[in-house]
Each structure stands twice: as C-alpha cells, then as structure tokens.
Design a protein around this nucleic acid. Structure first.
Length: 463
DNA sequence: TGAGACCACCGAGGAAACTG
DNA sequence: CAGTTTCCTCGGTGGTCTCA
C-alpha cells in the first residue's frame, strides 16, 4: 500500500512537471512539490520499516525496545492520523506539512518528545490550534507558544483549553509559524509522544511518521475500542494528578509531560504492561499492592505542574489507588435504602468492618460461629426480608476436601441447606449467597475460588 | 459544548421450529 | 396446514467515554 501511495504521488509529480511546461504552474510551486515528494518517500519508506527493525541495542533507560511501541501503518489509518496518501495535496490534508524534508530511520536511540495542543472553536465550526507545548525526555519544556487562529474564535473552550480571550489578544504567532518551528526543533528521527495525538496532528496540520500514542499502549478496560483518559492513566500509573484545575482548563505542558512519562514508565516494564488485551493482569485488587507498583514520589521526576506552582498543598497528596479497587462497599451503599439483612460467620464479618462506618443505615446483621449456624439462622430471616445476604466460607472448605466424594458430600449438604432457606422465604424475595474464596494475597497453592449464587423466589415477571 | 466512536439495549421483521 | 412461539439479525437509539 505504501509503495503504491508513493508511486501514485510520483505519478502526480510527473503530471505536474508536464503541466509546468505548459505554463500552468510556476517554478516555485514545482519546487515545493518536489520537496514534498522526497518527504513523502522517506515518510513511507521509514514508516514501513518499523517491523523489520531488530531488537538492536536497547536504549539504556528502557527495558525493551521503544520501537515496539510505535504506531504501525495500519494503526495510523485506523486511528485517523494524517497520512500523505496519493492526491493528498488536493484533498483533506492539502494544508498539512511534514515535520521534516527527509526522515531518518528511527532507532532505539531516537529521541522521544512529548507533545500536546489546546484548541479553540472558530467561526468555521472547527477546532483550531491555540496553544502547543513540546517536552524532551528530561521532561523539560523545550517549546511552548500561544497561537492565534486564522478564523474568529467563537468559543475559547476555556474549561478544557485553559485559553481565554485576554491570552490571545497580543498573540501574533500563526499556525504556519508553529509548523516551521517544529520543523526546526524536531530531528528527522524524532519520536512524537502524545495522548490521542491524531487530534493534535490535525490541529497543527503536521504529518510525522514516528508516533507513540499513550492512549493506545495502555488498555486497562480490557476492550479494544476503549481508551482511557490521560488523567485516569496518570493517576493510575504515575501517582500524578493532572487536569484538576476545574474551569481553568488543561496545561499542554503538563499533558505532554504526563503522556511522555506514561511511555517512559511502560518502557521500564515490558511490552504487555498496562495492556489487558496483551495478557497483562493488574497486581491484585488490593489498594496496597497497587500502590507499591506506582512510582514513589521520591522517584518522580520534576513535573512542570501549573497547580504545583500555584498551591503545593493540593498536589498529589492523594495516592494512586489503581483501576481495580474493591467495590463491595459501594454495593452496600447503593442498597442502603433497602430493608437489607446480612447473616455471616465471624471470619467473614471482618470484611464488613471497614464498610459499616460509611453507611448511614446499618443493615440488620447477624454474626454466627459457622456455616451451619448461618444457614439455620437464615431461615429465620428470609420470611421477613425481601433481600438477604447469606455469607459463608465455602471456597476454602471445598478446596480442602481430600477427594471428589467428600467434595460431592459437602455440596449436597450445602444444596439441602439452601433448599430449606428457599422454602422458608417469602414470595418475590431475593437471597444472595456469597461463598468466600481465598484472598489473592495468600500463596498460590492455597488459592481457592469464591462464588456467588442468587436465589429468587416466585419471580414477579415472566421469563 | 460538540464531535466521534463504541456498545448495550430494544423493537421490528423474517425464518425456522413447534403444536394442535 | 395454519397459527403460535422461538430465535436470530438488523437498524435505531441512548448512554458513555474520549478529545479539545
């Protein structure tokens, strides 16, 4: 495809040259076209080589080759990144420029630059560039400028962009100045890093072949289509709170830095890190284990944070708690208004201790010595409760059975107990049977699964 | 606020299976 | 065979989430 694109463009040049002899196009335009052609060729030539680059010497700061994180050509297309396809000079990307006249092959030593832009809505109903920041690998801001859009701004989107009318009043810098600055600033093998960088490319109207998109290398939802926000990922993986200024908007330097840090953090682990689609498993659901995984404050590099400058007491005192926090307390908070009964063993009861103080209505609770007592007492509760939680420790008990027959006996016993509870229940009531397994913190050989059964007596609806 | 992408849900419609 | 039920597909809609 890439070769065809390049060939198609070359054909276009031949035709243009022929037209030029007829006086349809002037010499200046032709020289621009030829320059563009070299850029296009090197763009595709090097972009298509990404896969063939072997695991050469890895960058000293990385645990694996950073080239593995670069967007592939098909991802460029899928994610809507601007590409110099045949005829692009007459189409959607006609105003776009390359960041280099002749791209150099990217290697594991190629420098990374974080980039982020802020935009305003203009009279042509499009988002136009209003601010841009670029940071280097030391997280130093090497370029930051405000940009005056060509069209009249109809909405500064201050809440998101942080741009106000006053800020742009004295600005004279235009998009084409920024494009030229970037061409001077970025080396021909620069790797641009950003979060959803296609939006920034479209705003800046640039094309660049070497891109790492932090939204694509972290997939914590387990879904292909689902990208997490920079704010969320920064909090999860970097212990870093960004975009917290409310109506004050984002800081492009801060966002560029956060995005680059996310990539650097991933490079300290492995290719699958933070990507559930590649088999990465979060540490555990434990707050404390997750916290250990995050970079400590002492290891953090200085971040150019607007808020930190403004109010150091507000920044990052809260620890990252990870994406997989326990949600049981929220379930009980949701059910506070219900006439809820919980019958459990003493060992299981300790799990409820941190939750109870957060509830304004404490559910009716009964704590008993063992599973047998729980199931017997549950029969007294269910005739009066629409929703009953019966919590036992069956997982560990089953995992300790020496053979299949014992296991079967245990399950039959359990079945009889549940049957009696169900029989005693009032119509249109729900009984949730929670059987604890082991904690993930115990050694693997002692792991046992927990499970949940839900009993509904006399369904109030047709199935 | 607006655009874009994705997904879950729901209803319509048609095909297949079942029943009397 | 006709009527009913079930199952499946498809398209529309609303919700959620991202970006600025």
């Amino acid at each position: 495809m890439m070769e065809a694109a390049s060939r198609g463009w070359e054909d276009g040049v031949t035709r243009t040259q022929r037209a030029s002899t007829l006086g349809d196009i002037d010499a200046l335009k032709l020289s621009n076209v030829l320059t563009t052609n070299i850029a296009t060729s090197s763009f595709f030539k090097n972009l298509s080589k990404l896969d063939s680059n072997p695991d050469d010497d890895i960058h000293p700061d990385d645990k694996f080759n950073r080239l593995k994180l670069l967007l592939k050509p098909d991802e460029f297309v899928k994610l809507g990144y601007p590409l110099p396809m045949p005829g692009f000079k007459g189409g959607r990307y006609k105003d776009f420029v390359f960041t280099s006249d002749n791209y150099k092959e990217v290697t594991s030593r190629s420098p990374m630059f974080g980039m982020d832009c802020e935009m305003c809505l203009t009279s042509i109903n499009k988002l136009e560039l209003a601010s841009i920041s670029v940071v280097n690998e030391k997280l130093e801001c090497i370029y930051h400028t405000l940009v005056l859009p060509y069209n009249k701004v109809v909405n500064y989107l201050t809440k998101f962009s942080g741009i106000t009318k006053d800020m742009l009043q004295t600005v004279t810098k235009r998009l084409e100045n920024v494009q030229k600055d970037l061409q001077k600033l970025l080396p021909p093998d620069a790797i641009l890093v950003g979060h959803g960088l296609c939006n920034d490319f479209n705003a800046t109207k640039i094309m660049h072949p070497y891109v790492i998109d932090s939204a694509e290398i972290y997939k914590v939802s387990g879904r292909h289509s689902k990208t997490s926000s920079l704010k969320t990922l920064s909090k999860m993986f970097l212990n870093l709170k960004i975009q917290i200024y409310g109506s004050g908007g984002h800081d492009p330097t801060e966002d560029a830095s956060a995005s680059l840090q996310l990539v650097q953090w991933k490079l300290k682990h492995d290719e699958t890190y933070g990507n559930m689609l590649m088999g990465w498993v979060p540490p555990t659901d434990s707050y404390y284990d997750w916290e250990k995984m995050c970079p400590s404050k002492s290891d953090e590099k200085a971040v150019d944070s607007k808020q930190e400058r403004k109010d150091s007491s507000k920044i990052s005192t809260e620890k990252a708690i990870g994406p997989f926090r326990r949600t049981d307390k929220y379930i009980f908070q949701e059910l506070e208004h219900c006439n809820l009964a919980v019958i459990t063993t003493a060992r299981c009861f300790k799990n409820y201790l941190p939750i109870l103080p957060t509830l304004s209505n404490i559910p009716l609770m009964e704590v008993l010595s063992g599973n047998k007592q729980v199931s017997q007492r549950a029969r007294d509760f269910v005739p009066n409760s629409r929703l009953t939680f019966i919590h036992m420790e069956m997982g560990i008990k089953l995992s300790q059975c020496p053979n299949k027959a014992t296991r079967h006996r245990q399950l039959r016993k359990l079945d009889k107990r549940l049957h009696r509870i169900h029989k005693a229940a009032i119509p249109k009531s729900i009984h949730v049977y929670v059987f604890s397994g082991s904690s993930l913190n115990v050694p693997f050989e002692k792991h046992s699964n927990g499970f949940v059964l839900v009993g509904i007596k006399d369904l109030p609806f047709k199935t």
